[in-house]
C-alpha cells in the first residue's frame, strides 16, 4: 500500500506503532528487513535537507491536480523509477499555478534549472524518464519557465 501508516503516538499515552508484518524482531535479518522497509519513510527528512543533490520530481497535487489524474502520474512515476532503480526524490507539491496544463510536474536535475512539464500522463511520464532523466534530453511539453522554485 502506498500510504502505509505509522500511527502517530500521542505523548500522553503509550501507543505502539502498528507494524503488520511482525511484532517481535527475532533476528538481525529481521531487523535489517524492517530497516529497509521503514528507511524510505523517513529518508525524505534527511535527503530533503539537501534536495539539491538529487533528481527531484514534484507532482502538482493540489485539488486541480488530483482531479486531473496527478495521483496516477505520481504512482506511476514512483513505481517506474523504483523499477528502474533510479534514485530520485518524488514529492507532491501544491498548485503550481498552471491549472490549465494539469497534471504538471517539475523536474530538477542536480545542477540544472528546474523544468516544468504539463499534461503529464503515463506515456508522457515514461518518455520523461527515458529521455530527460536517463539521457538528459528535453522532451516536448515544457511549460516556459517564468517560474522559480519555491524552495531555497
Amino acid at each position: 500500500m502506498m500510504f502505509r501508516g505509522i500511527a502517530s503516538v500521542s505523548s500522553n499515552q503509550i501507543t505502539i506503532p502498528i507494524n503488520s508484518t511482525m511484532n517481535k524482531i527475532k533476528t538481525l535479518a529481521d531487523l535489517k528487513k524492517l530497516q529497509a522497509e521503514v528507511q524510505s519513510k523517513i529518508s525524505l527528512r534527511v535527503k530533503g535537507d539537501s534536495p539539491e543533490s538529487l533528481i527531484q520530481i514534484k507532482v502538482s497535487m493540489a485539488t486541480c491536480g488530483i482531479a486531473s489524474g496527478a495521483k496516477d502520474t505520481l504512482t506511476f512515476m514512483t513505481e517506474e523509477l523504483d523499477h528502474q532503480g533510479i534514485d530520485a526524490l518524488i514529492t507532491q507539491t501544491g498548485c503550481m499555478g498552471y491549472c490549465y496544463a494539469e497534471p504538471t510536474i517539475q523536474l530538477t536535475i542536480p545542477g540544472k534549472e528546474p523544468v516544468v512539464y504539463g499534461f503529464v500522463n503515463k506515456t508522457k511520464a515514461l518518455e520523461i524518464i527515458e529521455k530527460h532523466i536517463k539521457l538528459n534530453e528535453l522532451v516536448d511539453g515544457i511549460i516556459p519557465a517564468n517560474y522559480s522554485s519555491t524552495d531555497n
Partner: peptide
C-alpha cells in the same frame, strides 16, 4: 529534530538498533 522520538520505527529507519545487532551477532 529529524525523527519522531515516540516512534521506534523511525529510529530503526535511521540505522537504529543495527549497532546492537552488529555487536550481538
Amino acid at each position: 529534530g529529524i525523527i519522531d522520538p515516540e516512534n521506534i520505527e523511525e529510529y530503526i529507519g535511521r540505522d537504529g538498533y543495527s549497532a546492537l545487532g552488529t555487536c550481538l551477532s
